[in-house]
Every structure is written in C-alpha cells, then in structure tokens.
Design a binder for these strands. Structure first.
Length: 727
RNA sequence: GGGCGAUUAGCUCAGUUGGUAGAGCAACCCGUUUACACCGGGAAGGUCACAGGUUCGAGUCCUGUAUCGCCCACCA
C-alpha cells in the first residue's frame, strides 16, 4: 500500500497535480481518445457547449454549479465510451464588459470613452477581457472541468466574427434583418439602445399631475412626466366613455408652456376609464404604449427629448434643459396659469438600464431589428412539424421545437414560461451604440446600403457605427463553435448538441435565441435537452452580492475544502430549476466524505494485500455484490434522466452508510474469524466494491477518486475507465 | 394586471410511472488504543399548508382557499 494513505487526504496538495495529469493525457479531446483507442471510432457522440462565462471578472458560485453539473454529465458519458465533446469558451458580453472598463477608467483617470476614442477604448477593453479570460480559465480548471481546451472559443474571436457577419448577411438577404425608425429603449447614461430584457424596474415615488393643456381645452389629463407633454399629438379616451363622446374626432390647437400643440381627440380601447381622468395624453415619441396608439391612429410623432435626456423644443425656459429640470419648470408654469388641478404622490416602476442604472428614455431611433413574425422559406428542415421548403417564422420555430418535444426543458414546467415569453415577443432590436462588440457589417454611401461579410472594394463607403447585441453572437454558439459557416467535420459530428445546461434566468436571453438561430441557419435544433439550474444563494437564502458581502468564492472553497467537496455540496439535493443554498457547514460535510473515501481505501488496501482475483465468491458476498450492482443501475438511470441531485446522494449514501458502515464493519470480524473461503471471498469483494465505488464516484468527485486510483498503481486514468456495466 | 412555482422532521431540502414518509445538519443517549473523531451504534422527531374530489390506495392526480417566492407586463 502506498504510504500516502497513512495520512489524511489532502486536496490542496492533490488537485492541481491531478488536473495537470488529465490535461497532459489529452483525453479531454475526443479525437485523442479515438487515436489512442480509448473511444471507438463509431461510438455514439455526446456533445455539450459550455455556456461561455462573461469576461467581466471572476467566477462565482453559479458558474461553479454549472461547471459541476456539466462535468458530471460529461465524465459519465465519457466513461460510457461515447465520443464526448465538452467545448469551453468565454463571452465578450459587449455592454457589460465595456461599461465595466469605462467605470474603471472614469474612476482612475477621470476620462470618458469619448476622451479616449474608439480605438484606444477598444484596446483597453480587449486588455481587460484577456486578463479576465485567463482568470476564468484557471478557475474552471480548479473546479475540475474536463473540457476540450484545444477547441476553446471566444464569442468575439476571428472565427466567431466570421460566423456573425455571415449570419447577419444571410438574415439581411432573407429580409429578416431590417433597419427601422422605431421607438426603442434609450439609455442616456450608457448612450446606447438596450433590449427589453436589459431593463430592470425600480420602484420609486413619483408625483402624478392632473391638468389641462390650456384654459379652453375641455379634457384634463394626468401624467408623471409633464415635460413630455410638449410632444403630445392626441388625447386618447376609451371608446365607451360617455364623458368624452362628444369630443372624439375633434382637433384642438393649444399653446402649452410656449409650445404650440395640435391635439386630436381619439378613442382607443387601450385607455382605462378609471385611471386618473380617463383621458390619456398621447406622446408618441416618448412612450412605448403611445407609439403603438399613434401607429393605430396614424398620428404625427414629435421628438422632444434628445439622446442626452435634454429638451429639444420650447422657448429658452425649457429648450436644452434636462428632463427633470424641464419637469419642474413646466409644473411651475401650470401653477402660474392655474391649470394644475391635482398633484398626488404615487409609487411607480421606473425603467432603468441593467448595466448603467440610467433611467431609460423611450425614443424613436433608426435601429436594426430581427423580424420574428415575418415569413420566410426554411429550405432544409429537420424540425418536426416544419417541412423543408415550407414557409415559417422565427417565432414559429421557437414554439414548435418545444411544443413537439424535440427539445426537452428540465424541469418541464418552464415550457409554460417559455411559451408565454414567445407569445409576447416583439421584433428584436440588435443594434447597440457601443464600441465593444461585433461591428454591423453594413456600409453606407449617400442613399445606398451595402451588406456583406467583407467591406466593399471601392472607397467612400462608411461602415455603420453600431455593434451588435451580445446575444446575437451568443445565439450562434452551438454551431459557431464547431466551425460554421464552414461545413466542418465537427459540425457534422457534434451538432445538434445533446445538452444545454444553464441558469433559468437566461432562458429567454439565450436559450430561445439559440433555438432561433439554429433553426434559421441549420434548420435544426441546437440541443436536445435544456437543463436549467437554480440560483446559488447563501445560507439565509439571500442572493450572493458584492454589496451584501455574503458571496462565497468558489476558489476559496476549493482551497479550503477541495473542489470535490464544493462540487458535492452544490449538487446533492439541489433539484433542477430550484434555488439552492450553500454554506460552509454543508461543504465541510463533503470534505469529510472525501476523507472517508480515502480511509475506506486505506482499510481495504491494508487488509487485502494478499487477495486472490480468482477467489470463489460465497453466497453471502454474491448478494452484497448484486445489491451494489442494483444501486449502480439505479444511479445510472438517474444520470440518464439527469437526476443528478438524486444520483449524487445515492452514491454518497451507499459508500458511507452501506459500504463503510455495514460491509466494512462486518468484514473486520470475517477477516479475523471467518473460514478461509469466507476470508478470500470477502477480500475479493472488498476490492471489487472499492474499485466500482471509485468509478461511480468519479464524475462527482473526480480529484480524490483519481488520486486514489493513481496511488493504487493503476496504469490507466480513472477518467477513461469504463462505467461499471449493469447487466 | 397576467403567468409560474413552493408549502414535507427544529433548520435546509429530496421524494422518478399513485403503492407502508427519506437524507444532511442540529439536538438526545451510548460507545470508541482506531481504516477514519473528518468515527461508530442507538433512539427521538412528520394529520406531507388547509378544504373538497378521483382511486382499492394520494405527499404524488383534479378543484378551490390561504401564505410565501419568482418571472413577465406596466397606469399614463
């Protein structure tokens, strides 16, 4: 027996060395497995694309959970003998990364991005992204990720950029990408548009003012934003509101705080009779809802606020003023004119930009969109329910694949949430006015527009200044990572992937967009199963955050208790879709388990030095062996069904409370007092149980099991051993 | 306002197709020169939120109620 077993298990000394051993073996790469005869050339494939962590900093517990679940599945599949590919990567996370760097620069150097200029800023962001990438990669390794680093991808590297340009052009040529003057969410602080999903609502106190535009205007209206009223072109009332019937269809000319307005009275079902005065001042250019009303009634749309949230109309009392200042000035004016009827305090949800915290100003802008309801012909379709050559829409693709169970979402109640989101989906605004990201492959010359993967040959074309929403490139992830648009071997072999494992909070952001992209470009699903894990919370159930200071750093955990312990603590009993709480106590428990496995080995090895492989097994031992096989079969079924939270608990239970507490305890007596037959049989059994326990434990706790395997003097790596057969 | 989920032991949570309620932690008793105190044995602890229903049988399926949580929309 190796002397190592005389001391307690020391993860700190072990884990880095073991990871290096795996990495140098090359077996994370399925091609190497085939070359070296570990995997059969014709074996089934199993592929998983790692959700690329953002290069905005360091790994958190959520990443650790993601890595653990994926690594368990991947190691299990590899041990089954499948051609297993787990492809890692990182995400440039456009706006998140740029604003992170901008903040740093503003703080340290008191400079804005405009002071630096596009080129210099990008240099800085790239530098930051690189450092962040290196940190993240080293952290993924600490947690034991058995992914194929030789295929690593970045959403903003050259290959992915080609994929993005190709994708844009194809969608543009099909007419699904269009440029439109539409109302968008403008973030004045970040100076960019943002998507609906990048908005967070904050509850705030606000004043609701009720007033008339002028003395001779017949209807009072209510608003929390009087300054936008200089852009009103209508007052909308409910079609059945008796109070206002006689005014519907009339037009009034008024002078509102020095600005002449033409207000048409219209009837629209959207207006609620019971809110405020039952009349809504319609500001088409600065409210989503009002824009839609304006579209229905063909109203003029007047922009009165600019990109810096400053007024663009009015006399010098308001022109050029910030919206908040203009609001006060207009309220003062209303008071002085005796037009203000009521002023009440209400709480309202205000839209703010997720990344910058700026208050979102809806305004009309010329932006690029993806049409989700527009019909196009899907040439080659492998999607069930959509024939090759038939007409479909992106929305229909997204709905169909889940509806007909071609993609299974785990837990399946998320189907409903998914469908609900799709029903309410509007065209996707994909252009962003930031610099870090994929530049839109469109060039302009006078009135001409040119879209291609490469710049036009002749000069005097200027490229669109904007970049793409980061989710555009993430949407291509399952196939851009495999070499698309080229028709590579990898793409043929590994797509569609078998599993996408990610947090439920990005079901819409990302999962749905991958379905959209894969459906459009390949006519197939991006993955067969979606496993949604929950949020990792602290012991009190709070979200981990910097401001609370309650975060647990996965790397600290690995250093203190070992990555194996951290992995088990994250996974045992934490069902898909359910948030999970983690505490040091829980992790410590699994550190003890690592040591338990270590000591089981010590006992078994020290008491079976003379064991005989050909020993005859007694009936009693045969039963024990069979029972273990049944447990393994059980665990195998759980793993096949991705019930990882149950599989991990079962092997823990078996190893500690059956193998150690019962079988080993009994063995002590048998070895001392049993007949020769009983002793030789038992020794053989103990070795068999130990080896198969290590095999089954390996996906969950790869480091300690591999270290034991190596210390037992085995020739092969445990990571490429075969999963125990369960005949 | 719309949707989704949760409610099981003191705490944290599992519970596959309906078949006698499970784990970890905590607490209690006992043991321990031993593979391991990063230990072992034992006992205790639950009207599975509530009310109906389906069924031979319900924690599990259906209906309703209550409380909590999350997501989406957003009232001008």
């Amino acid at each position: 027996m190796n002397d190592k077993f005389l001391k307690p298990y020391n993860p700190e000394e072990t884990e880095k060395r073991i990871y290096k051993l795996w990495e140098e073996s090359g077996f994370f790469n399925p091609d190497v497995c085939i070359e070296k005869g570990v995997t059969n050339k014709d074996a089934l494939k199993y592929s998983v694309m790692m959700p690329p962590p953002n290069v905005t900093g360091i790994l958190h517990m959520g990443h650790a959970l993601m890595i653990t679940i994926e690594d368990i599945v991947v190691r299990y599949q590899r041990m089954l003998g499948k051609k297993t590919l787990w492809l890692p990567g990182t995400d440039h996370a456009a706006i998140a990364t740029q604003s992170r760097v901008e903040k740093d620069i503003a703080k340290k150097e008191k400079l804005s991005r405009h002071d630096l200029g596009r080129e210099e800023l990008l240099k800085r962001v790239n530098q930051f992204a690189k450092e962040s990438h290196d940190t993240i990669v080293s952290q993924l390794k600490i947690f034991g990720a058995s992914c194929d680093w030789s295929r690593e991808a970045f959403t903003l590297d050259e290959k992915r950029n080609l994929a993005v340009r190709t994708a844009f052009k194809e969608m543009y040529d099909t007419g699904l990408i269009y440029r439109g003057h539409r109302i968008v969410n403008w973030d004045p602080k970040g100076q960019t548009t943002i998507s609906d999903d990048e908005i967070v609502y904050e509850e705030r106190k606000a004043k609701l003012y009720t007033f008339k535009y002028s003395k001779d205007f017949p209807i009072s209206i209510s608003t929390t934003r009087p300054e936008t009223k200089v852009g009103d072109t209508a007052v909308a009332v409910h079609p059945e509101d008796e109070r206002y019937q006689k005014y519907i269809g009339q037009t009034f000319n008024v002078e509102f705080c020095g600005v002449p307005l033409t207000i048409k009275i219209i009837a629209d079902k959207h207006v609620e009779k019971d809110f405020g005065t039952g009349a809504l001042g319609v500001t088409p250019a600065h409210s989503m809802i009002d824009w839609e009303i304006a579209e229905r009634h063909d109203l003029p749309r007047v922009q009165v606020i600019n990109e810096f949230a400053k007024m663009t109309v009015g006399g010098e009392n308001i022109l050029g003023k910030k919206v908040t200042d203009a609001r006060e000035i207009i309220v003062e004016w209303l008071k002085s004119e005796n037009l203000l009827e009521k002023e009440e305090e209400i709480t309202q949800n205000i839209s703010t930009a997720e990344r910058t915290g700026g208050i979102v100003e809806p305004m009309p802008k010329l932006q690029w969109f993806i049409a989700v309801d527009k019909e196009f012909t899907l040439k080659d379709s492998k999607i069930k329910g959509i024939e090759s050559g038939s007409k479909t829409t992106l929305k229909q693709i997204m709905r169909t694949v889940v509806e007909n169970n071609q993609i299974e979402i785990i837990p399946n109640y998320f189907d409903k949430t998914y469908f609900h989101w799709i029903e309410n989906l509007r065209d996707w605004c994909i252009s962003r006015q930031i610099w870090y990201g994929h530049r839109i492959p469109v060039w302009y010359k006078n009135e001409e527009i040119y879209c291609d993967t490469e710049a036009p040959k002749d000069a005097d074309w200027t490229q669109d200044e904007d970049t793409l929403d980061t989710w555009f490139s993430s949407g291509l992830w399952t196939f851009s990572t495999l070499g698309w648009p080229e028709s590579t071997e990898d793409l043929k072999t590994y797509h569609p992937t078998n599993l996408l494992e990610t947090g439920y909070e990005i079901l819409f952001f990302w999962v749905a967009r991958m379905v959209l992209m894969s459906g459009f470009f390949l006519g197939e699903i991006p993955f067969e199963k979606v496993y949604l894990h929950g949020t990792v919370r602290d012991a009190q159930g709070r979200k981990m955050s910097k401001s609370l200071g309650n975060g647990i750093d996965p790397i600290d955990v690995a250093n203190k208790f070992g990555a194996d312990a951290g992995r088990m603590a994250l996974v045992v009993g934490s069902a898909p879709g359910i948030d999970t709480k983690i505490s040091e106590d829980k992790i410590k428990g699994y550190k003890h388990f690592s040591n338990k496995i270590w000591n089981i080995t010590r006992f078994v090895l020290s008491s079976t030095t003379d064991f005989d492989v050909n020993a005859k097994i007694t009936q009693a031992d045969e039963i024990i062996s069979k029972e273990f096989n049944e447990t393994i079969l059980d665990i195998t079924k759980d793993l096949e069904a991705l019930r990882i939270h149950i599989a991990s608990e079962k092997i823990y239970q078996y190893v500690w409370h059956t193998f150690a507490d019962v079988i080993i305890e009994d063995s002590k007596k048998i070895i001392l007092e049993g007949s020769i037959e009983e002793v030789t049989s038992r020794k053989k059994l103990l070795v068999e149980l130990l080896e198969n326990s290590l095999r089954v434990l390996h996906p969950f706790m790869p480091f300690v099991t591999e270290e034991i395997w190596q210390s037992m003097g085995k020739e092969n790596l445990l990571m490429i051993e075969k999963w125990p057969s369960t005949k």
